[in-house]
């Protein structure tokens, strides 16, 4: 995953309905670049062959 450009940061914030001054967007862009290695690191588990406990919830009686 490459770092986000200025316009991509602005676009994602706009999609989220958030307005921030340009200087704050620049700071955020730098922070996102720091977060990226973490987001890449957690992309480990492959396509699961079955339902996974973390993403399964129970319906019905407790």
């Amino acid at each position: 995953m490459p770092p986000l450009s200025e316009s991509e940061i602005a676009a994602r914030l706009a999609t989220a309905g958030i307005t921030l001054p340009k200087i704050e967007q620049d700071d955020l862009r730098a922070a996102y670049a720091m977060l990226l290695p973490a987001l890449e690191m957690i992309r480990g588990p492959g396509i699961p062959p079955a339902a996974e406990p973390a993403l399964t919830f129970a319906a019905g009686e407790k």
């Binding site: 914030l13 989220a16 958030i18 955020l28 996102y32």
Partner: peptide, 10 residues
Amino acid sequence: RHRLALGALM
């Protein structure tokens, strides 16, 4: 504000 905004980028 900035820490929350980082979540908006994910």
